[in-house]
Design a protein around this nucleic acid. Structure first.
Length: 273
DNA sequence: ACCAGTTCCTGGCAGC
DNA sequence: TGCTGCCAGGAACTGG
């Protein structure tokens, strides 16, 4: 499932492969992942150049030469593949952009939880999707992070998953960061000490940086734009390790459900206070 | 205003 | 072998 490190890896891959290319043609297979009509997409994508590729939270933002933005969210199973030769559209492919050098960028999504949307430059500032996102976890300072969380209520795991509080962390990295910071996922944010929040800030940044270096985690079907898997899953200390020994103390890793999400933690290392 | 629960969607897998 | 039913979860939505 693409979270911040996977999306960052994809963005870097896109910069390497499609930056400054010109869109020559496109194929569209309408489905619920398309949040813009085929006619609107055709009108605004054809003959545009890829001017900039950025990430905001888990969103990929492609700026076109017109100034319009292509905003892509990969949901659970979305993918963007760079192809240097034409290929048949797969069962779950929704969009294929062909560039003037005859290479392609293909967007697919098996479970259709993703979003593919074109935003006119004039609407970009008003656009809610990106406006409601919290700060970037790799950019927020220690003190701003502490201040931000101190104002929040609820359990720490739910807060980390809430994109309007902090953007980009999903189920895997929330569990891994909480283990790293030795915080129990059910701990109320208001009960975490200033020192605990500082440790959490460090833990989040450390885990995300390491995961980006590893090209993300390929637990399900995640692949980068060139089809390569990430390898951070080999460094997971709690996620997907229910019943296995904690790498720190040997206690069996526990799995519970919080917000309908599996949550993995070490009951000995991560105590509630 | 806030929080918990429900829904969308499909492939993979366990169990019979 | 083939069928059924459950599970994975990001985010929008609903109901209390």
């Amino acid at each position: 499932m693409p979270e911040l490190p996977e999306v960052e890896t994809i963005v870097r891959g896109l910069r390497k492969t499609v930056l400054s290319k010109k869109i020559k043609s496109l194929k569209i297979f309408p489905s619920r992942v398309l949040h813009s009509s085929p006619a609107f997409l055709k009108r605004n994508l054809l003959r545009q150049r890829i001017q900039e590729i950025n990430r905001r939270g888990k969103n990929i933002i492609i700026k076109l030469s017109s100034g319009d933005l292509l905003v892509i969210h990969l949901g659970m199973t979305g993918n963007l593949f760079y192809l240097n030769r034409p290929a048949f559209m797969g069962k779950h492919d929704h969009i294929d952009l062909e560039f003037s050098d005859r290479t392609h960028l293909r967007y697919g999504d098996i479970r259709k939880f993703g979003k593919f949307k074109l935003i006119k430059s004039s609407q970009a500032i008003k656009e809610g999707v990106l406006k409601t996102l919290g700060p970037e976890p790799l950019e927020i300072s220690r003190d701003d992070f502490v201040q931000l969380l101190q104002k929040k209520k609820g359990r720490i795991k739910s807060v980390l998953l809430n994109q309007s509080i902090i953007a980009g962390i999903g189920n895997i990295y929330a569990d891994e960061a909480l283990f790293e910071a030795k915080l129990h996922p059910l701990q109320k944010v208001s009960d975490i000490s200033r020192n605990g929040l500082i440790k959490l800030h460090q833990a989040i940044q450390k885990i995300l940086r390491k995961a980006i270096k590893a090209g993300g985690s390929s637990v399900d079907n995640y692949r980068d734009v060139e089809g390569e898997p990430g390898f951070f899953q080999f460094y997971h200390k709690v996620y997907g390790r229910e019943g296995e020994p904690c790498k720190r103390c040997g206690t069996k890793i526990k799995r519970i459900i919080i917000n309908q999400r599996s949550t993995h933690f070490c009951p000995k290392c991560q105590k509630k206070n």
